[in-house]
Amino acid sequence: MINRKAERWTGRLGVILAVAGSAIGLSSFLRFPTEAARYGGGTFMIPYLCALICCGIPLVWMEWAFGRYGGIWGRHNLPGIFDAVTRRPWGKYLGVLGLYAPFIIIVYYLYVESWTLGYTFYSAIGKFTYKSALPDTTYLFNHYLGIGGQVISLPIIGLVFLLITLALNFYILNRGEAGIDKFTTYAMPVFCLFSVGLMVYLFLTRSFHGVSIWRGLDYAWKPDLHALADPAIWLSATGQVLFTLSLGLGAVITYTSFLRKDDDVALSGLTSLSINELVEIVLAGTLVLPMAIIFFGPHATTATAQQHAFSLGFMTLPIIFGQLPHGDLLGALWFLLLFFSGLTASVSLMKPIVAFFEDELHWTRAKTSWILLVVTIAYLAPVVLLQKYGFLDEMDFWAVNIVLLVGALVETVIFIAVLGMARGWEGITTGARMHVPVIFKYILYITPIFLLGTLAWWAWMHALPKLMLTDLPATIAKADLPYRMIVTIASRVTMGLFLLLMLLAIRFAAARARARATELSLPTPTDEEVSSDVS
């Protein structure tokens, strides 16, 4: 067992920067602009801002409060915390989402993270020193991913960087949070300042290839109110808010479970959210999407975004760096810092999984890490090899838009109905270094309605075509359609199997806990006895 005391955060700023570091990652610079472009730029911003107020802020406070309660109960993972709070046999099974969501996301997140390391290398060797637009960056991106005429994508260079990424992640995971805490404190502010510098450069230059930056910003912010009638945009925007803030998957809960019982959660949680949103809305919202519009035009930008999740940043930023003096070095540094921000986020995503196996199954950190590494590599194989036909995109859609929303919905219902609003509100306000507006007590009730409404509306309009594979993008060539369908089904089946595996792990942990209690001759009741006692 690791020394939990040694893992306690060294300071308030440390935990905020670590949580912000886990939140500022590939999501802000890569996923957010791509999702916004997919749904028409400015139109995406309205549901995004609504979701931020109705779900983002309340859920941040809920998860920080939940995590601190969990630490007091001696639990550091979602199944354990739900088990403690519900005191019902089914409680821990609801917490499966706190294992499943991070695992599904970490698999493809690690791959995307490795792309940023690959682009660091590409930039350093001068691949970005050209001035042309779409053809080169698209070719470079596809070439890096090994996407060509063949069915299987085999990225030779990409595999090297993927292995380096895996090695670094699992090395840091084994060393404990102290390393992340220290590292994030220095790396994130540098990354933010660098991005601010880039943004200032864009505003001072004002025009690229004869197109004004204001035209790009106009697309990124001009809403088309008619498009808001499509629930898909609301689902995607809510999923993006949850994903970027690492909500609905237990990562924040695991981090904050190491707080002391009188530590502030209200101001700390809100600060991590505001830093993350500042980076996402202001920096990434200026650097990537508007520039893609300038370089490629709206139609090509939307088509690219629909083809590959996380892709736009890899298309636009090389062109920006290509126009700067010493752009190869600056590009290498920027992508390297982006890689490090992704690294902190991916390690934080693995923490809930590790915490579960350590706390509930009493595995050692080394054993958990090695098993997690082997399973991740096995799952990464189809993600890498079937990239051309959207294995990764299918995982990303279900993990972010469905699993995270359901996870957040379950959390809010348990927070309000089981923990109780009075106790929950006390959890948010105890030790608070700010006055929490009372209106949020009512917004906390709106959060589950918003989440359930979005999910139900989307299911009503889009679930059937999605499940029957009749909504595949029209840009897919007819010859590729059968492959795309097979890969989509394979991706869903794999995700289903892993959900089953996680449920079995929880059942195994419960059986193990009962066996240990019997060994120690403790009068621990069975799940059924607990439930009958409570009822």
Partner: peptide, 30 residues
Amino acid sequence: MSREAIILMSIAWTAIFALTLFCLWRLERK
């Protein structure tokens, strides 16, 4: 830029800058 885009962008940027400054100010206060 169109008027709608300017309004939406101004609201979002102002709100997020104000929130961040408020948080950092409160955090620094003893």
